[in-house]
Amino acid sequence: MKIQAHLRSREPGRSRRNGVMAPEVAQAIRAGIFQGEYRPGDPLPEMHLAAKFGVSQAVVREALSGLAHTGLVRRFPNKGTYVTSLTPAEIGELVRVRLLLETAAWIDAAANATSKDLQCLTERLGAMEAAVAAGDYDGVARADLEFHREIWRISGDSTIARILDQVTAPLFAFVSVRRHQRRDDLSTIIAEHREIVRLLGKGDRREIERLARAQIERSYGAFVPPNLPVLSFRAGGAGRA
Protein backbone atom coordinates (compact mmCIF):
# COMPACT_ATOMS: atom_id res chain seq x y z
CA MET A 1 0.00 0.00 0.00
CA LYS A 2 1.53 3.30 -1.12
CA ILE A 3 0.33 5.25 1.87
CA GLN A 4 1.99 2.73 4.20
CA ALA A 5 5.38 3.38 2.58
CA HIS A 6 4.68 7.10 2.78
CA LEU A 7 3.88 6.85 6.48
CA ARG A 8 7.12 5.02 7.20
CA SER A 9 9.11 7.66 5.33
CA ARG A 10 7.79 10.52 7.47
CA GLU A 11 9.78 12.01 10.33
CA PRO A 12 8.18 10.18 13.30
CA GLY A 13 8.65 12.71 16.10
CA ARG A 14 7.36 15.77 14.28
CA SER A 15 4.45 13.95 12.66
CA ARG A 16 3.22 12.49 15.90
CA ARG A 17 3.42 15.78 17.74
CA ASN A 18 1.44 17.82 15.24
CA GLY A 19 -1.16 15.14 14.48
CA VAL A 20 -0.50 15.08 10.74
CA MET A 21 -0.30 11.31 10.60
CA ALA A 22 -3.65 10.36 12.11
CA PRO A 23 -5.65 11.39 9.00
CA GLU A 24 -3.21 9.48 6.81
CA VAL A 25 -3.53 6.35 8.94
CA ALA A 26 -7.31 6.75 8.87
CA GLN A 27 -7.21 6.99 5.08
CA ALA A 28 -5.06 3.85 4.86
CA ILE A 29 -7.49 1.90 7.06
CA ARG A 30 -10.45 3.30 5.11
CA ALA A 31 -8.87 2.18 1.84
CA GLY A 32 -8.22 -1.25 3.35
CA ILE A 33 -11.89 -1.58 4.28
CA PHE A 34 -13.12 -0.66 0.80
CA GLN A 35 -10.50 -2.87 -0.88
CA GLY A 36 -11.48 -5.86 1.25
CA GLU A 37 -8.29 -6.08 3.31
CA TYR A 38 -10.39 -5.49 6.43
CA ARG A 39 -13.81 -7.11 6.20
CA PRO A 40 -17.01 -6.33 8.12
CA GLY A 41 -16.63 -7.63 11.66
CA ASP A 42 -12.82 -7.81 11.55
CA PRO A 43 -11.00 -6.54 14.66
CA LEU A 44 -8.65 -3.57 14.29
CA PRO A 45 -6.13 -3.95 17.15
CA GLU A 46 -4.25 -0.75 17.86
CA MET A 47 -0.93 -2.48 18.58
CA HIS A 48 -0.99 -4.38 15.28
CA LEU A 49 -1.91 -1.29 13.25
CA ALA A 50 0.73 0.82 15.00
CA ALA A 51 3.40 -1.72 14.05
CA LYS A 52 2.07 -2.02 10.51
CA PHE A 53 2.13 1.72 9.83
CA GLY A 54 5.16 2.54 11.97
CA VAL A 55 3.33 4.99 14.22
CA SER A 56 2.39 5.17 17.88
CA GLN A 57 -0.77 3.61 19.29
CA ALA A 58 -1.94 7.13 20.14
CA VAL A 59 -1.90 8.00 16.43
CA VAL A 60 -3.83 4.83 15.59
CA ARG A 61 -6.33 5.56 18.37
CA GLU A 62 -6.94 9.04 16.96
CA ALA A 63 -7.37 7.60 13.45
CA LEU A 64 -9.86 5.00 14.66
CA SER A 65 -11.78 7.64 16.58
CA GLY A 66 -12.20 9.61 13.37
CA LEU A 67 -13.36 6.52 11.48
CA ALA A 68 -15.86 5.75 14.25
CA HIS A 69 -17.33 9.23 13.74
CA THR A 70 -18.03 8.33 10.10
CA GLY A 71 -19.46 4.94 11.06
CA LEU A 72 -16.91 2.78 9.24
CA VAL A 73 -15.75 1.22 12.50
CA ARG A 74 -17.42 0.61 15.83
CA ARG A 75 -15.66 0.90 19.17
CA PHE A 76 -16.67 -1.20 22.16
CA PRO A 77 -15.44 -0.50 25.71
CA ASN A 78 -12.98 -3.17 26.93
CA LYS A 79 -13.38 -5.07 23.65
CA GLY A 80 -11.69 -2.97 20.99
CA THR A 81 -12.51 -1.60 17.55
CA TYR A 82 -14.12 -3.54 14.71
CA VAL A 83 -15.03 -2.87 11.10
CA THR A 84 -18.75 -2.12 11.10
CA SER A 85 -20.85 -5.18 10.35
CA LEU A 86 -24.64 -5.28 10.26
CA THR A 87 -26.96 -8.22 9.68
CA PRO A 88 -30.05 -7.71 7.49
CA ALA A 89 -32.17 -7.76 10.65
CA GLU A 90 -29.98 -5.08 12.27
CA ILE A 91 -30.22 -2.95 9.13
CA GLY A 92 -33.99 -3.34 9.29
CA GLU A 93 -34.11 -2.20 12.92
CA LEU A 94 -31.91 0.83 12.22
CA VAL A 95 -33.93 1.79 9.16
CA ARG A 96 -37.20 1.67 11.12
CA VAL A 97 -35.78 4.03 13.74
CA ARG A 98 -34.25 6.26 11.11
CA LEU A 99 -37.51 6.58 9.16
CA LEU A 100 -39.40 7.88 12.18
CA LEU A 101 -36.76 10.26 13.48
CA GLU A 102 -35.49 11.45 10.10
CA THR A 103 -39.01 12.40 9.04
CA ALA A 104 -39.54 14.33 12.28
CA ALA A 105 -36.20 16.11 11.79
CA TRP A 106 -37.07 17.06 8.20
CA ILE A 107 -40.44 18.48 9.28
CA ASP A 108 -38.82 20.56 12.04
CA ALA A 109 -36.04 21.67 9.70
CA ALA A 110 -38.60 22.82 7.14
CA ALA A 111 -40.19 25.01 9.82
CA ASN A 112 -36.84 26.46 10.91
CA ALA A 113 -34.78 26.68 7.71
CA THR A 114 -33.53 30.09 6.61
CA SER A 115 -32.21 30.93 3.16
CA LYS A 116 -28.70 30.62 4.62
CA ASP A 117 -29.50 27.11 5.88
CA LEU A 118 -30.76 26.06 2.45
CA GLN A 119 -27.62 27.49 0.86
CA CYS A 120 -25.49 25.47 3.28
CA LEU A 121 -27.37 22.31 2.31
CA THR A 122 -26.79 23.12 -1.35
CA GLU A 123 -23.06 23.40 -0.65
CA ARG A 124 -23.13 20.02 1.12
CA LEU A 125 -24.84 18.66 -1.96
CA GLY A 126 -21.96 19.97 -4.07
CA ALA A 127 -19.50 17.83 -2.09
CA MET A 128 -21.72 14.81 -2.66
CA GLU A 129 -21.92 15.57 -6.38
CA ALA A 130 -18.12 15.70 -6.64
CA ALA A 131 -17.83 12.32 -4.90
CA VAL A 132 -20.42 10.78 -7.24
CA ALA A 133 -18.54 12.11 -10.27
CA ALA A 134 -15.34 10.54 -8.94
CA GLY A 135 -17.03 7.19 -8.26
CA ASP A 136 -15.97 7.55 -4.63
CA TYR A 137 -18.45 5.42 -2.67
CA ASP A 138 -16.91 6.28 0.69
CA GLY A 139 -16.81 9.97 -0.20
CA VAL A 140 -20.48 9.84 -1.19
CA ALA A 141 -21.41 8.22 2.12
CA ARG A 142 -19.44 10.79 4.13
CA ALA A 143 -20.86 13.74 2.17
CA ASP A 144 -24.35 12.26 2.47
CA LEU A 145 -23.95 11.90 6.23
CA GLU A 146 -22.79 15.52 6.56
CA PHE A 147 -25.75 16.65 4.45
CA HIS A 148 -28.15 14.92 6.83
CA ARG A 149 -26.28 16.13 9.91
CA GLU A 150 -26.88 19.65 8.64
CA ILE A 151 -30.62 18.96 8.40
CA TRP A 152 -30.61 17.58 11.95
CA ARG A 153 -28.84 20.73 13.12
CA ILE A 154 -31.41 22.92 11.39
CA SER A 155 -34.22 20.94 13.05
CA GLY A 156 -33.11 22.34 16.40
CA ASP A 157 -33.78 19.05 18.21
CA SER A 158 -30.48 17.97 19.73
CA THR A 159 -31.90 14.69 21.07
CA ILE A 160 -33.13 13.55 17.66
CA ALA A 161 -29.83 14.69 16.13
CA ARG A 162 -27.80 12.66 18.64
CA ILE A 163 -29.87 9.49 18.18
CA LEU A 164 -29.87 9.81 14.39
CA ASP A 165 -26.11 10.21 14.40
CA GLN A 166 -25.72 7.00 16.39
CA VAL A 167 -28.16 5.15 14.12
CA THR A 168 -27.24 6.55 10.73
CA ALA A 169 -23.42 6.75 10.73
CA PRO A 170 -22.81 2.96 10.86
CA LEU A 171 -25.75 2.37 8.51
CA PHE A 172 -24.38 4.76 5.86
CA ALA A 173 -20.85 3.40 6.18
CA PHE A 174 -21.76 -0.29 6.02
CA VAL A 175 -24.11 0.16 3.08
CA SER A 176 -21.50 2.26 1.22
CA VAL A 177 -19.01 -0.63 1.48
CA ARG A 178 -21.65 -3.04 0.17
CA ARG A 179 -22.51 -0.69 -2.69
CA HIS A 180 -18.84 -0.40 -3.58
CA GLN A 181 -18.59 -4.20 -3.69
CA ARG A 182 -21.67 -4.38 -5.92
CA ARG A 183 -20.65 -1.37 -8.02
CA ASP A 184 -24.08 0.19 -7.59
CA ASP A 185 -25.06 3.17 -9.72
CA LEU A 186 -24.86 6.40 -7.68
CA SER A 187 -26.25 8.70 -10.37
CA THR A 188 -29.72 9.13 -8.83
CA ILE A 189 -28.55 10.31 -5.43
CA ILE A 190 -28.01 13.95 -6.42
CA ALA A 191 -31.51 14.47 -7.81
CA GLU A 192 -33.00 12.86 -4.70
CA HIS A 193 -31.12 15.21 -2.40
CA ARG A 194 -31.94 18.28 -4.48
CA GLU A 195 -35.57 17.35 -3.96
CA ILE A 196 -34.99 17.25 -0.19
CA VAL A 197 -33.65 20.82 -0.28
CA ARG A 198 -36.57 21.95 -2.43
CA LEU A 199 -39.18 20.46 -0.10
CA LEU A 200 -37.50 21.84 3.01
CA GLY A 201 -37.75 25.27 1.42
CA LYS A 202 -41.38 24.66 0.46
CA GLY A 203 -42.36 23.31 3.89
CA ASP A 204 -44.99 20.82 2.67
CA ARG A 205 -45.29 18.29 5.51
CA ARG A 206 -47.15 15.65 3.51
CA GLU A 207 -44.62 15.78 0.68
CA ILE A 208 -41.73 15.65 3.16
CA GLU A 209 -43.16 12.49 4.75
CA ARG A 210 -43.68 10.93 1.32
CA LEU A 211 -40.14 11.71 0.17
CA ALA A 212 -38.52 10.47 3.40
CA ARG A 213 -40.25 7.13 3.09
CA ALA A 214 -39.58 6.76 -0.65
CA GLN A 215 -35.90 7.63 -0.31
CA ILE A 216 -35.31 5.21 2.56
CA GLU A 217 -37.12 2.43 0.70
CA ARG A 218 -34.90 3.00 -2.35
CA SER A 219 -31.74 3.26 -0.27
CA TYR A 220 -32.09 0.12 1.82
CA GLY A 221 -34.58 -2.16 0.06
CA ALA A 222 -31.78 -4.16 -1.58
CA PHE A 223 -30.10 -4.90 1.76
CA VAL A 224 -33.06 -6.23 3.73
CA PRO A 225 -35.02 -9.44 3.00
CA PRO A 226 -38.57 -8.65 1.81
CA ASN A 227 -40.13 -10.63 4.68
CA LEU A 228 -38.70 -8.26 7.30
CA PRO A 229 -41.22 -5.53 8.28
CA VAL A 230 -38.66 -2.75 7.90
CA LEU A 231 -41.10 -0.11 6.75
CA SER A 232 -44.25 -1.54 8.27
CA PHE A 233 -45.33 1.70 9.89
CA ARG A 234 -45.38 5.29 8.79
CA ALA A 235 -43.81 8.19 10.59
CA GLY A 236 -46.41 9.84 12.76
CA GLY A 237 -48.56 6.75 13.29
CA ALA A 238 -48.87 3.00 13.03
CA GLY A 239 -50.10 1.24 9.94
CA ARG A 240 -49.00 -1.14 7.26
CA ALA A 241 -47.25 0.23 4.20
Rank of each mutant, 00 (worst) to 15 (best):
A133W: 01
L101T: 06
I91V: 15
S115N: 12
A89E: 15
V59I: 14
A68W: 00
M128I: 08
G36R: 08
L118D: 08
L64W: 01
P43C: 07
P40K: 07
V59K: 00
F53W: 11
E123M: 10
L94V: 02
P43A: 08
R142G: 01
D117K: 02
G80M: 07
R142P: 00
N78W: 09
L44V: 01
D117H: 14
V60P: 00
V59G: 01
V97W: 03
A68P: 00
A134P: 08
G54C: 06
Q35A: 10
R75F: 00
A104P: 00
D108C: 03
V97E: 11
E37Y: 02
A105V: 11
L100W: 05
V83I: 08
P88V: 11
Q57E: 15
A89S: 10
A104I: 07
A51V: 01
G54D: 09
A113G: 07
A110M: 11
A63Q: 04
L145G: 06
R124N: 14
D108M: 13
A58F: 04
R98N: 12
A134T: 07
A131K: 02
L72Q: 14
K116V: 14
V140F: 05
Q119V: 02
L86M: 13
L44P: 03
L125T: 08
L100P: 00
T103K: 02
D138Q: 14
H69W: 06
L67M: 14
R96L: 09
P45T: 09
L64T: 00
E62T: 12
A110P: 06
L86N: 05
A134E: 15
G41E: 14
G135V: 09
V140Q: 04
A130S: 14
L121V: 06
A110W: 10
E93N: 06
V97R: 10
T87W: 10
R39S: 11
M47G: 05
A134F: 06
E90G: 03
G126V: 05
V60K: 00
A104G: 03
A63P: 04
E37M: 02
H69N: 13
T70Y: 08
H69Y: 09
S56M: 06
V97M: 11
D42S: 08
G126S: 14
L49T: 03
F53Y: 15
A58T: 13
E62D: 15
T122W: 10
E123Y: 05
D136L: 04
L145A: 12
W106T: 00
A89F: 13
A143K: 04
K52S: 07
A68C: 02
Y38L: 06
Y38P: 00
T114V: 07
E146K: 11
V60R: 00
G135W: 09
L118G: 07
Y38F: 15
Q35T: 07
D138I: 01
A113L: 08
I91F: 04
D42M: 03
E37V: 05
L67A: 05
T122Q: 15
L118Q: 11
C120V: 11
L118R: 06
A131C: 08
